[in-house]
Every structure is written in structure tokens, then in C-alpha cells.
């Protein structure tokens, strides 16, 4: 198996803002503590963890939006610390924090991002047709983002995140806030991407999503990787939910 994405002991501590200090009763917050994992070519890797575990922080580091305090991550052998511009060419990144401008149409945005990724115009036209048809965006191609439903916005975001047909996709909570129909379209699409040989790293706190699509899982609690293995080895045929709570009790103690 070819290791295509490697995370080596990344740590990240945030200085808290005045507002957060009151809530956390501390000056700093360690979001990631020597987190390591790898993803292999053609698999779907799931980062599972409760709110505030550090999932988003880890994926932001992979997508070079922020830098780790220590440790490094490599994507196809390229360091996110040393060569962030190159890394961004290799990946597609999707999170609900990345918004599309209300005043543009899906068509305009698709063209705009394609040109930033230096996609050949003829390839871009074919890809636009394919993706817009698949997600049912074609009818709304000239409708402004502001006038689209949440589900349609998410589908446009998804199409735009992969305009350049990247080999590695990083999805932060890809089904968050979507209704069951749209969520199914997205999960089906993840499976299809995998079939095409793409590598996907996703984060979620939804057990069923992991069980449905992931090959391997890392359970992350308080910024630390607790277990990281294939889904089968971690669960040993028990429900993932039970396994998760066992680990959580070991790490943090009884739930209140």
C-alpha cells in the first residue's frame, strides 16, 4: 500500500482571545498534541472525535490554512510547512467554513476557481458539465448563490472543491447540516471518488458515516490520537459507538 499522506506528530496550541479565556479559564488551548496518522492511496480515512477534539485544526493544517507549532505533514511527499503553495495544488478541501460569495452564480464560480487552478478550458467545460449534471446544479447554474438552498450550496461547494480533479480530498464534516437526501448524494459521491482511486481524509462525529464509507479510522480525543487502525480491527464486529465510548471512558473518565 502506498502511503500518500503522512502526519507526523503535529501539535498546535492557540492563544485564547479574551472572550474564550473566560470560558476556558486558561490562557492557551492545546488543540493538537503530537497527532500522527497516515492515509494510503485509494482509501477513505476517517477522523472521528467529539466537539473540540481538534479535527478541524488537523485538517486546516493539512490544507495549509494554518501551520503546526511542531511536527509536519506531507502530501505526496510535499511538506505543508515548507511548500504550502504546491500542496494546495494537490488537494481539494471542503469544509462548511469555506463559503461561496452570495453575489456569484455557480457557473461563474466554477470558471473562476478553474482558472485559479490553471485547469485547461476544454477540460473545465467537460468537468463542469459532468459535475453539474451529477449534482443537479445545471438548472441553477445562473442563479445567485444567495438564492440557493443549503443543500444546493453544499453541492456547489463540493463541485468547486474538486474543479482540478485532485488525487487527495480533505473533507471536514462533509454531511453536517444536510438533509438525508443531500447527505446521501454526498456519501455516494465519496464512494464513487474512492472507486476512481482518489484518497479521502474526512472528519466527522457521526458514527454511521464512518461505518458506511471509511476503510480506516483514527479516534481523536482532546487533540490526541487514541486508536488508529482499520475499521474492522477497531470494532471487532461491535458497534462503533460502543467502542468509541469505551475509549472515551478510558481517556477522559465517566461521562457526566
Amino acid at each position: 500500500m502506498q502511503e500518500i499522506l503522512t502526519v507526523r506528530e503535529i501539535s498546535k496550541t492557540f492563544n485564547l482571545s479574551a472572550k474564550q479565556r473566560k470560558i476556558e479559564k486558561a490562557l492557551k488551548k492545546t488543540a493538537l498534541d503530537k497527532l500522527s496518522f497516515s492515509a494510503y492511496k485509494g482509501e477513505i480515512f476517517g477522523l472521528l472525535g467529539p466537539n473540540g477534539a481538534g479535527k478541524t485544526t488537523a485538517l486546516r493544517i493539512l490544507s495549509t490554512l494554518i501551520q503546526p507549532d511542531s511536527g509536519d505533514a506531507e502530501i505526496e511527499g510535499i511538506s505543508v510547512r515548507k511548500n504550502p503553495d504546491e500542496v494546495r495544488k494537490k488537494i481539494g478541501f471542503l469544509t462548511s467554513e469555506l463559503k461561496l460569495d452570495d453575489y456569484f452564480t455557480p457557473n461563474y464560480l466554477f470558471n473562476f476557481f478553474s482558472s485559479l487552478y490553471k485547469v485547461e478550458p476544454s477540460f473545465m467545460q467537460r468537468r463542469k458539465k459532468e459535475l453539474f449534471e451529477k449534482f443537479g446544479i445545471d438548472k441553477f447554474a445562473e442563479v445567485r448563490i444567495a438564492d440557493l438552498s443549503t443543500g444546493m450550496k453544499q453541492k456547489v461547494s463540493l463541485a468547486i472543491a474538486i474543479v482540478h480533479d485532485p488525487e487527495i480530498l480533505i473533507f471536514d464534516e462533509p454531511t453536517n447540516g444536510l438533509d438525508v437526501l443531500t447527505a446521501k448524494i454526498v456519501t455516494d459521491f465519496l464512494a464513487e471518488l474512492k472507486k476512481q482511486g482518489k484518497t479521502i481524509v474526512l472528519s466527522t462525529h457521526i458514527f454511521s458515516l464512518i461505518e458506511k464509507v471509511c476503510d480506516r479510522v483514527g479516534i481523536i480525543i482532546n487533540g490526541k490520537m487514541t486508536v488508529c487502525d482499520t475499521l474492522g480491527k477497531i470494532t471487532e464486529n461491535r458497534p462503533l459507538e460502543d467502542v468509541f465510548f469505551d475509549i472515551y471512558r478510558q481517556e477522559v473518565g465517566e461521562l457526566e
Binding site: 490554512l65 494546495r88 469555506l98 461561496l100 452570495d102 487552478y117
Partner: peptide
């Protein structure tokens, strides 16, 4: 405005310098 609405981050994940 772009920072507030999260559209700046969308631009920052592209390979643009």
C-alpha cells in the same frame, strides 16, 4: 467582508499566492 463571510478562506485554499 470576505473574512467575515468565510469567502476569503475559500480563496486561500487555492494555489494562488
Amino acid at each position: 467582508g470576505e473574512k467575515e463571510r468565510g469567502t476569503m478562506a475559500t480563496l486561500l485554499v487555492t494555489p494562488v499566492r
